[in-house]
Write a protein that binds this DNA or RNA. Structure first.
Length: 591
RNA sequence: CGGGGUGUGGCGCAGGGGGAGCGCGCAUGGUUUGGGACCAUGAGGUCGGAGGUUCAAAUCCUCUCACCCCGACCA
């Protein structure tokens, strides 16, 4: 492809709507164009990258015996009613009506459709296991799309669904898919960490996310510095050893005029926050619940939501709290009845805490469980923190940020049961197949790859997903020799199957070099009168600072050889963005 | 949904009751060509939309739409 013909020109200035690196670079290179909030056109360069990622995915999945198919984006709403998931998706589900007033929706995911499809085609245990996948556009009416392709309302996704005879089969497929995912991301040249994840309202016992590690990531990951434990903060557990263990002292009321927050209380009484008991009130599907937790910790709403099995969870309004006869700012579980009390285990392990006195301007000292209060549930509902102990090996937890590019779930029989899918097992009995589902956000992966691999000049593509492999710069085009040599090399390399961008524009060297860097093509070749004096071509890798000359006569041969070597990434391949935390990734990629 | 912000040519921005401007980009001609050259000439905008105030509105008022950021939210 000639650069002069590429649809979409590079921009010198950053469009003001973007403040996210990948978003800025995708706009500056005109790889994407925004049509509405969270809705983008992929221009030719981006489309090539998406295709490459898709091909890597296909190759890896087909090796497992998975079969590709294509389900509709437009789905009958009725099937979402049957599984009840129109409720859990809520407003994120795009809905519409056809001319006969029949309700339809745009698929945010395809568990319903695939399960129905399998219903019509699954008869015998001999048909299992089954792995089906598609590459599809998904629609989710996100409350707030952001970051360009990182959180869009329309995006491309690979979703695979597994069906198995039994739990062992599901486990085997799940492990197989973990390996496939690790292969896929590695082949794309992005470093990911696999972490334990919340499976949310979809249920199921096992769920893992694959995170592209980058400081700009939306998700926080807690990982152990010693063992392989890594989890999304939504799910992570930290060991909360008691820090003030003492003999219980007698309960004592203290005056705390105007004190309402834990910060103020700790400062006023000159005690650490960890010596206080925090009371937080939530409305869980309209039930007000009372959560108590050690003052230095925060309630993890995901854990709480899973515990209460509610569909809506929010902080209670002050008026709702008052209606329950509680004093916001001075509330405690001491002598409180008529409300469900959930205690984080940090509270029940601790001694002599300062808690509210359930009347304004007073607190209680030396509150101890179970002497002074009772609770309905004791469990872990705290947000794990850096510095806490790893739940597996008790070493210290660290924190890092990532972008979720893959998510896998063991669904079990949730969908097959609801939609009545069964098969005849070996003994001739009706049996429910066990499902797993596995997703990769392809367009998000494209953006995440840029987040992970760029510098101040632009994108740094890894070879396997770069839109082109080579950027051929011809400098001094009024020199006929330059034109002849460049055209010849361009033709030769194309004949060899090299994907090449030929910058044939009458532009200054600076413009061409800057565009080459911005576009991030791995190898830049320069043909110029200067290099031609020594019958040479200049080679420069995007990841390296220095260029070097090779003889013109060997150019095609050398270039093809070097490209082949770099096509399949070896672990030691230099890439500035991939170097950092490299060891961690390897440790994080759990067996 | 709460809070904040922005809408003026393809991109970045200035202007703030009476001529719609600047830089980049684009076109044409010329001089240039190893890290975003220069000169000249030009094309391109219902100032997000609707209503109002006024002799006169990009500018003031009202409503509205879109987009961005923070939060809530996000299987």
């Amino acid at each position: 492809m000639r650069v002069s013909h590429i649809f979409g020109k590079t921009l010198r200035e950053i469009p003001s709507e973007a403040d996210n690196i990948s978003h800025q670079l995708l706009l500056r290179t005109t790889m994407i164009h925004q049509e509405a909030a969270g809705v983008y056109t992929y221009l030719p360069l981006a489309w090539r990258v998406l295709h490459k990622i898709e091909q890597i995915i296909r190759k890896e999945l087909d090796t497992l015996g998975a079969q590709e198919l294509m389900m509709p984006a437009l789905q009958p709403f009725e099937v979402w009613e049957r599984t009840g998931r129109y409720l859990s998706f809520g407003k994120s589900l795009f809905t519409l009506k056809d001319r006969r007033d029949r309700k339809l929706c745009l698929g945010p995911t395809h568990e319903e459709i695939i399960t129905e499809l399998v219903h019509y085609n699954l008869k015998s245990y001999r048909d299992l296991p089954l792995l089906l996948y598609q590459l599809q556009i998904k629609f989710r009416d996100e409350p707030r799309p952001r970051g360009g392709l990182l959180r869009a309302r329309e995006f491309t996704m690979m979703d695979l669904y597994s069906f198995d005879r039994d739990a062992e089969g599901l486990d085997a497929n799940y492990h197989q898919m973990i390996q496939a995912y690790q292969n896929i991301f590695e082949r794309c040249g992005v470093s990911t960490m696999m972490v334990e994840a919340d499976s949310g309202a979809i249920g199921g016992k096992d769920s893992h996310e694959f995170m592209v590690i980058t400081a700009s990531g939306e998700d926080e990951i807690l990982y152990c510095s010693c063992c392989s434990y890594a989890a999304n903060v939504e799910r992570a557990q930290g060991i909360k050893s008691p820090i003030h263990h003492q003999e219980p002292l007698p309960l004592e009321e203290v005056s705390t005029p105007g004190i309402k927050t834990i910060e103020d209380l700790a400062a006023y009484l000159q005690i650490p926050k960890s010596q206080t008991l925090k009371a937080v009130f939530y409305s869980a599907d309209d039930e007000i619940v009372f959560v108590v937790i050690r003052g230095d910790l925060e309630v993890n709403e995901v854990k709480l939501k899973n515990l209460l099995k509610c569909s809506e969870l929010r902080l209670a309004e002050d008026t709702e709290v008052e209606k329950k006869g509680l004093v916001a700012g001075s509330a405690s579980p001491v002598k409180i009845t008529g409300i469900r009390i959930i205690a984080d285990d940090s509270v029940t392990q601790e001694t002599n805490l300062v808690a509210g006195a359930n009347k304004p301007d007073y607190h209680l000292k030396n509150v101890n469980y179970p002497r002074d209060f009772q609770v309905d549930i004791i469990t872990d509902v705290a947000t794990a923190k850096v510095g806490q102990g790893c739940p597996r090996c008790h070493s210290e937890l660290n924190s890092i940020r990532g972008i979720e590019v893959g998510h896998i779930f063991k669904l079990g029989t949730i969908f097959t049961e609801k939609l009545g899918v069964s098969f005849l097992d070996q003994e001739g009995r009706q049996s429910l197949p066990l499902m797993g589902c596995y997703g990769i956000g392809i367009s998000r992966l494209l953006a995440a790859a840029i987040e992970q691999s760029h510098d101040e000049k632009g994108i740094i593509w890894t070879m396997p997903i770069s839109p082109y492999q080579v950027y051929l710069c011809a400098l001094g085009l009024e020199d006929n020799k330059v034109v002849t040599v460049a055209e010849e090399l361009y033709a030769c390399l194309m004949k060899e199957g090299v994907e090449i961008l030929f910058d044939d524009r009458f532009e200054s060297a600076g413009v061409k070099f800057n565009d080459a860097d911005l576009l991030g093509i791995p190898l830049r070749l320069t043909i110029s009168p200067r290099a031609l004096k020594s019958q040479s071509v200049e080679l420069k890798w995007r990841t390296e600072k220095e260029s070097h000359l090779i003889p013109l006569s060997e150019a095609t041969q050398v270039i093809v050889r070097d490209l082949t070597q770099r096509q399949d990434l070896s672990p030691g391949r230099p890439s500035p963005a991939r170097d950092y935390e490299q060891e961690r990734f390897q440790r994080g990629q759990v067996q």
